[in-house]
Structure formats: C-alpha cells, structure tokens
Amino acid sequence: MTSFHYRYTTIKGYFLQSEAGTDDQKFDFKKQNFGLADRKYETDRPEDQGAESQWQKFARYVRYLDSKSSKDVHYKVLFLGRHGQGWHNVAESKYGTAAWDSHWSKLDGADGITWADAELTDLGKGQAKEASELWKSLLPKGIPAPETYYVSPLKRAIETADLTFKTLDLPDGKPYAPIGKELLRECLGVHTCDRRSPAATIHSLFPHVELESGFSEEDRLWDPKNRELSSERKLRLSQLLDDLFAHDENVFLSLTAHSGAISSILEVIGHRKFALETGGVIPVFVKAEKVAGNREAAS
C-alpha cells in the first residue's frame, strides 16, 4: 500500500470530447482528428507558423508543461480505446439486457456463440482496423505515437490493440510493445465474458504481450457470485492510474480496454461522461498531482 496517491484533473480546451457542448451520441472521432481542437499554444514559435500541424504544436506544449512541472506533478495524454464489437455484445443484443444479466451472461456461451473471455466479431475487427487507418493517416501529420501501450488482458482488448497498432509504421524507438494490466479489465465478476484466460493461454495466443509483474496464472479477480460495484470499479481504475503516473515517465500513453473501465477512468480524472461505441477512442489531457496518504483511506 503506497503512502500517496494522485489527484487528477482533466485539462479542458484541447479535445472537443471534454467540452460540455459536444454531443457524444453524434461525435465521430474518426472525422474530427481524434477531437483535437484548433487553437494556439504559448509554446508556438513564430518561425514555424504555417509549417506545423495542430498535433505537433499540441505535443510540444504537453511536453513543455510536463518538463517544467515539479516532481509531484505530471501531465499525460491518454488515448483510451474501447475494444471492437465482441461476441458478448452480440449475445446481449440477441437475448436483451435483462435476460443477459440474469441468466445468459453466467454461461460460457449458447446457440453456437461463445462469449467466455469474448473474442472480436468480424465487425469488431473492422472497427479496430478503422481506428488503425486513422492513426495511419495522422502519423505523417505529427500525431505523437504512443510511447507505452497498455492493454486489458482479455482477448477482445488485445485483439483490438493488435489490429489497431501492429501494422503501423511507427517511429524508431517507439515500437508497439503492449503490456497487460490486470486492473485495466472490465467490471469484474459473474459475467463469463469478463473472466480472463489463464496466463499460459494468453502467452500462447499473444506472445508479444508482456504481462505485468505478479500476473497470476489463474484469474484471481473474477468471482462467479459477486459482480463488482461501480464504486469498487472506480477505486480499481484509480489505483491503475496511480500506478501508471507513478512509474511511467512517458507522456503519451495508449490504454485499450472496455466501456466500464473507460467510464471509471473518465470519472476518476474529472472528465464529463462520454459514451464510446465499440471500437471508439477518446483522448484525454490529464494533470496529476501527488497527494499524501493512500487512496483507500482518502476514499
């Protein structure tokens, strides 16, 4: 248990998704440059006027803020990506949410569909590839490639990250090297789609994924009888962020996860609610300030 945690703030005015006037039901990040606002920065240089993209200006500004801040303050940009459509999404639509929650979600599958540790459907794979095409189009225009890639260890999240980033022509020194993080998972318990596979299976299917230190062979977090409360999920995701901000010195991070996990992250960082479709991505500009005392005591 750490003797400190972080207080998080979403810095508004940089991404359209952070603004109250943006309709999350209509917003399409693929058509809006990931939502980056067209604006000026205090780090803009007269000699570069007209020669730099908004992403280049933004990246320089973020690094400037982080470099000049005290050792207890950090600035990062998190690209939060929801996995593409999985077979559990298909099943919930097929049976209806009420029946799904009360019965079908507790099974490994039915009617020719398997949703335990659900994999992507063809539609879900296509959604991930659409995100990849956006990255492909923006990398030459200066969007900063993620410096660290974190993934939920559930199959659908790893598949999404792979389809999004694996084929990109990334800058030298910034390879796609995903790290599996237990705390980045979807709401825990009861639903078999949220029970992860054993570590040996993950290693066999995704040998390029580095599972974090202490990653257990069997899933110790999933409980077949108890479903995690939203308050518990929020605490879990706040602990994940504390870990990343305390130990990862990089500024631009990719986190590929789930709707519930992303909702909790947005809540922790003080971001407005913003629903993501399957395969959706939302960038957030975050300030973290170290606070004395462990998070459990502060909650």
Rank of each mutant, 00 (worst) to 15 (best):
K287F: 02
A261V: 09
V284Y: 06
R195W: 08
E182Q: 15
R220K: 14
K174W: 12
P283L: 14
K287I: 01
R236S: 04
L211S: 10
T201G: 06
S259N: 11
L205V: 10
L211C: 11
R185I: 07
K181C: 13
A200W: 12
G270Q: 04
D169G: 11
K290L: 00
F285N: 06
L255A: 09
T278F: 08
K290E: 01
D172S: 15
D223G: 00
A288F: 00
A292I: 04
E267M: 02
D194E: 11
Y176H: 13
S259C: 05
L221T: 09
A288W: 00
K287G: 04
S264L: 05
R272P: 02
R233Y: 02
I262E: 10
S254H: 09
G280C: 08
E186Q: 13
K290T: 00
F285R: 06
H191N: 12
L211I: 08
W222C: 02
E267D: 15
R220L: 12
E217W: 13
L253I: 15
K181Q: 15
I202H: 12
D248Y: 05
E232R: 01
R196Y: 08
L205G: 05
L205H: 11
S238N: 12
V251G: 05
H247P: 00
L241G: 03
R295H: 04
F245N: 00
R272Y: 06
F285A: 04
L253H: 09
R272G: 07
E289K: 03
E218K: 12
P171N: 14
